[in-house]
Design a protein around this nucleic acid. Structure first.
Length: 789
DNA sequence: TTATGCATTCTTTTT
DNA sequence: GAATGCATAA
C-alpha cells in the first residue's frame, strides 16, 4: 500500500523515482502513436492545461499517455499524481492503460480514483475535524430518506406536501454548491417552505451523532477541512505534484473548489473535458467551470483535440449539425479522415411497441448480415434511451423473440432489497451503533415487532442516551415488549452479540461469518419460505453477495467498498445487445447505435425544459449529441406517433432535434406496415424542407381517424399481432392446462407449465425464467407455434 | 401486527 | 402501470 501515510509521504521517500536510473535513455515509444494535438497535450507537463477533447478524439489515450510520460520522465512518482475520474470504471480503465503503456504493472496509483473514493480516503484521516470518527459510515439514498422523514415528522411538517425526497434534493444541491448549514446564503432561506435551512442543520447534527455522512458530505467535508486548516491543505498541495481531471465539464462547485485548493500549490493541473458533453447539470455540474478555466488559471495552455477516430463522416456531420444549435460553446470543429459511410437513418413508428419490434428485427438482420455488410456481433450494438422506462418495451420484445440483451444501470446489485438487508446485518455486526441498519432489519424477517415496539425501543434508547441496539437490550431485560415480539427481539440481540464476538475471535473467516449471520438471523429462511417468483433470484443474489466477500480481507473492507462502488459490469460471455440510458453511455462507443424515442416531451424531456428552460433544452441537445457520437458506423434514430405515458396512450410529435438533423446526412427509412408512411413521405421531401415537413407530419397525427380513436378512448388503434391472429383469448375462453404443457405467453415467450393454482399457472419460461401467470394470458404452444416471432 | 385493497403519484438523468 | 402510502379488515 504505497499510500499517503505520514511516514510514507513526507520523509521524502527513499523509494527511487521511476526514472532516476535511466531517465534520459528511457525510450518513449508511447509518444509515437499520437497526433500533433495529442502530443502537445501530453508533453505540456508543467503548468495548467485545458484539454478540450471532442467525442472520439482519443482523450483517454492522451490522458493516460500523459500519466505514463510523467512517470517515465521521473517528474512524479505514482503516488504523487492525483488523477480524478467520475466513475470507477473510468479509473480502472485508466490504470490498465497506463500500465499497458509503460509495459509494466503500475503498482498502486493510490490517488487515481473517483472524487468520492479519493475523498473517503482523505476524510478517514481527518474525520475528527468535522466531528466524525475515522470509521464513519456512508449512507445511501435510502438511509438518507429515512432519516429525513424522521426529521420532517419531528418538525411537525406534513410529509405529504413536503416529501423527504424533495428535501433530500434540496440538501444535495446545497452540498453540491459547497454550502454548509453555516455558510448557507440567505437567498436559500425560503427553501422547503422556509424550513429547509433549519432541517439541513438538524440533518447534519444527526449524521454526526450517527457517525455517518452522505455522498455529498464526502466532498463538502474535505473542502471545509481544506479551508479551515491551512497546514493540512499545504501538506496535500505539496504532495500532489500533478493533478489530472477527467470529464471536467461535469464537476460541480464543491469539486471545483476542492480541485482549485489542491492545485494552488504546484499549479500543475490538467483538466480534460468537452463542454458539448456536459449532461449532468441537473446534478449540480457547472459547465461554467470549464468555460472559466483560463480565467482561473491564467496562462493556461489550451489544447483542442478535434480529429475524430470513431465515427463516419455522416454521423459526425449529423452530430455537429445538432449541437450547432447551442449558444455559448467553446467551439470545436470535429473532423475525420474516414469517408462517408452510411447516413444516419431516421424512421417513425406507430407506437412504442412497434418501434421495439422494428429494432428487434433490425438487430437480428444486422446480426446475420444485411446490405452487403458482414454479420455483426450483438456486443457491437446498443440501444440508448432518454429515460429508463423506455427500456421496458425493448426488454419485453427481446424476451419474446429470445434476443439476448443486457441492461446497464437498472436497479443495481447493491441497491436491491435483499442485498441491502443483508448488508444491514453485516453493518450491525461490525458496529452495534448503526441505528439505521437496526431500524432496517428489526422486523425483517418478521419478528412481531411493529411500529409500537420500535417506538418503545427508540424511547428507551433516547432516555438512556444509547444506541438502538442497547435500547433493545434494555427492553428485553426489562420485559418492556411482551409476547412474540419480545422473544424475537431477545433472539436478535443475542444473535448480534454472538456474531460480534465470533467475528472478533476470528475463528471463522468473514465469509463463513456472513453465512452464519444470514442463516441464524432467519433471513435466508425468510426467502426460502417466500413463494413469490422473485424469491429464487433473491437467494441467488445473496449467494453472489457472499461470494463477493471472498475478495476482501474483512467485513469492514467490504462495506467500505460497497458504499462507493456502483458498477454493475457483468462480463458475461454470451453476446448481448446493450440497453442503457444516454447518460450511462457517455464515454462508450458501438458500431451500431439505436436512438429510439425522439419525441418532443420525451426527448427533449418536458420536465427538463420546464425546470431549466433554455438551459435545460441545451443540455438535452448535448445529450442528443452524446447519443449520436456513440455510433461508429450505423446510427438509427426513431420516434413513435403514440406512446404510453403513465399508462395512458398519448400522441407524440417527433422531437425538434429530428428537424435539426442536417438533411444531407440523413436517410429517411419508410416505416413498414399500415401507418408507417404517414409522417413525411420520401427522403427527398425530408431533405428538401424539413421544417415544412414537420407540419405535414404533425397533420398526419392529427388526422380525423386518429382524433376519433382518441375520443373513443380506444387508443390501441392497431391490433397487436396476436390480436390480429386471434391469439389473445378472453377470460371466458380459458382452456385448461396440465402440468408439463408447453405454452406460449406474448411477453415471456415459450415455457412449460410446472404447477397450477386455480387460474394461476407456475410456468418455467425458456428465456424469462419462472413466473406465475394468470392462465388467460397463456396459449398452448402448438397454437402459437406457427407465429413467426 | 400484518395483510389486503384502494387511491395516489409519478418517471429524467446518478457518483 | 407500478410503486407507494393509507385505511380497513383479519
Amino acid at each position: 500500500m504505497s499510500d499517503f501515510d505520514e511516514n510514507d509521504a513526507f520523509e521524502a521517500a527513499a523509494r527511487p523515482r521511476l526514472s532516476e536510473q535511466a531517465m534520459a535513455a528511457r525510450p518513449m515509444p508511447y509518444l509515437d502513436g499520437l497526433n500533433p494535438a495529442q502530443r502537445e497535450a501530453v508533453e505540456a507537463l508543467d503548468g495548467p492545461v485545458l484539454m478540450l477533447a471532442g467525442a472520439g478524439t482519443g482523450k483517454t489515450k492522451a490522458l493516460t499517455t500523459r500519466i505514463a510520460h510523467l512517470l517515465n520522465t521521473g517528474q512524479a512518482r505514482t503516488n504523487e499524481i492525483l488523477a480524478v475520474t467520475f466513475t470507477n470504471k473510468a479509473a480502472r480503465e485508466m490504470k490498465e492503460r497506463v500500465a499497458g503503456l509503460l509495459g509494466q504493472t503500475v503498482e498502486g496509483m493510490p490517488w487515481m480514483g473517483t472524487f468520492h473514493s479519493i475523498c473517503v480516503k482523505l476524510l478517514r484521516r481527518h474525520a475528527e475535524l468535522v466531528g466524525l470518527k475515522t470509521n464513519f459510515t456512508i449512507l445511501d439514498t435510502d438511509d438518507q430518506i429515512r432519516l429525513l422523514k424522521q426529521l420532517i415528522a419531528a418538525a411537525n411538517i406534513d410529509e405529504k406536501r413536503w416529501p423527504a425526497r424533495l428535501l433530500s434534493g434540496v440538501i444535495d444541491n446545497w452540498k453540491n454548491r459547497a454550502w454548509t448549514p453555516e455558510t448557507l446564503p440567505s437567498s436559500e432561506a425560503n427553501a422547503f417552505n422556509g424550513r429547509g435551512p433549519e432541517l439541513y442543520a438538524q440533518y447534519q447534527e444527526r449524521l454526526k451523532t450517527l457517525n455517518a455522512c452522505d455522498f455529498g458530505d464526502l466532498l463538502l467535508h474535505m473542502v471545509t477541512i481544506f479551508q479551515k486548516h491551512d497546514d493540512i491543505l499545504t501538506k496535500y498541495q505539496t504532495w500532489f505534484k500533478y493533478i489530472l481531471v477527467d470529464e471536467y465539464q461535469d464537476t460541480n462547485v464543491a469539486q471545483y473548489l476542492w480541485l482549485r485548493l489542491l492545485a494552488a500549490g504546484h499549479r500543475n493541473i490538467c483538466c480534460v473535458g468537452d463542454d458539448d458533453q456536459s449532461i449532468y447539470g441537473w446534478r449540480g455540474a457547472e459547465v461554467g467551470n470549464i468555460l472559466r478555466f483560463e480565467k482561473d488559471f491564467p496562462g493556461a495552455k489550451v489544447v483542442r483535440l478535434e480529429q475524430n477516430y470513431r465515427s463516419t463522416a455522416h454521423i459526425l456531420a449529423a452530430a455537429s449539425g445538432v449541437i450547432a444549435g447551442n449558444e455559448g460553446r467553446l467551439g470545436k470543429e470535429l473532423w475525420t479522415e474516414a469517408d462517408g459511410g452510411e447516413k444516419v437513418r431516421l424512421i417513425g413508428h406507430w407506437d412504442g411497441d412497434e418501434e421495439a419490434r422494428w429494432v428487434g428485427e433490425e438487430i437480428e438482420a444486422m446480426q446475420s448480415g444485411t446490405r452487403g455488410r458482414a454479420g455483426m456481433s450483438l456486443d457491437d450494438m446498443a440501444i440508448l434511451v432518454r429515460a429508463s422506462h423506455q427500456m421496458r418495451a425493448f426488454e419485453d420484445r427481446f424476451l419474446t423473440i429470445g434476443l439476448p440483451y443486457r441492461v446497464i444501470g437498472g436497479p443495481r446489485f447493491y441497491e436491491r432489497m435483499e442485498i441491502r438487508d443483508a448488508m444491514a446485518y453485516f453493518r450491525l455486526t461490525v458496529s452495534q451503533n448503526d441505528d439505521l441498519a437496526f431500524e432496517r432489519i428489526v422486523n425483517t424477517p418478521r419478528r412481531g415487532l411493529g411500529d409500537k415496539a420500535v417506538q418503545t425501543i427508540q424511547t428507551l434508547a433516547r432516555q438512556n442516551g444509547v444506541s438502538l441496539v442497547e435500547g433493545a437490550r434494555i427492553a428485553v431485560e426489562s420485559g418492556a415488549i411482551k409476547g412474540k415480539g419480545g422473544k424475537g427481539l431477545a433472539e436478535l440481540v443475542a444473535g448480534l452479540d454472538r456474531w460480534f464476538t465470533q467475528l472478533r475471535a476470528e475463528d471463522d473467516t468473514h465469509v463463513e461469518m456472513a453465512e452464519v449471520i444470514l442463516e441464524e438471523s432467519g433471513y435466508t429462511e425468510m426467502w426460502l419460505n417466500d413463494k413469490t417468483p422473485e424469491a429464487p433470484g433473491r437467494l441467488e443474489n445473496l449467494k453472489e453477495l457472499v461470494k463477493a466477500l471472498e475478495s476482501f480481507e474483512n467485513l469492514q473492507g467490504f462495506l467500505e467498498h460497497v458504499s462507493l462502488i456502483m458498477d454493475n459490469d457483468t462480463d458475461d460471455a454470451e453476446e448481448k445487445v446493450t440497453i442503457m440510458t444516454l447518460h450511462a453511455a457517455k464515454g462508450l462507443e458501438y458500431p451500431a447505435v439505436f436512438l429510439p424515442g425522439w419525441e418532443d416531451g420525451l426527448f427533449p424531456s418536458q420536465r427538463s425544459m420546464d425546470e431549466s428552460g433554455l438551459k435545460g433544452l441545451e443540455e438535452e441537445r448535448r445529450l442528443a449529441y452524446v447519443g449520436i457520437t456513440r455510433a461508429e458506423e450505423i446510427c438509427t434514430i426513431s420516434f413513435a406517433a403514440n406512446r404510453r405515458v403513465y399508462g395512458q396512450w398519448q400522441s407524440q410529435l417527433p422531437s425538434r432535434f429530428v428537424d435539426e438533423l442536417p438533411a444531407d446526412h440523413v436517410e429517411v427509412l419508410t416505416a413498414p406496415g399500415l401507418y408507417g408512411g404517414g409522417y413525411g413521405g420520401t427522403a427527398g421531401d425530408f431533405g428538401a424542407s424539413p421544417l415544412e415537413d414537420k407540419a405535414s407530419r404533425a397533420d398526419a397525427y392529427n388526422s380525423p381517424g386518429w382524433k376519433r380513436m382518441q375520443a373513443q378512448g380506444n387508443l390501441r388503434a392497431k391490433p397487436s399481432p396476436n390480436e390480429a391472429r386471434g391469439l389473445v383469448i378472453d377470460a371466458t375462453a380459458v382452456s385448461s392446462f396440465t402440468q408439463g404443457d408447453r405454452v406460449f405467453h406474448t411477453k415471456f415467450g415459450y415455457g412449460t407449465v410446472m404447477g397450477i393454482e386455480g387460474d394461476k399457472l407456475d410456468i418455467e419460461f425458456d428465456k424469462a425464467g419462472a413466473k406465475k401467470v394468470v392462465s388467460k394470458f397463456i396459449v398452448p404452444a402448438a397454437q402459437a407455434g406457427d407465429v413467426p416471432f
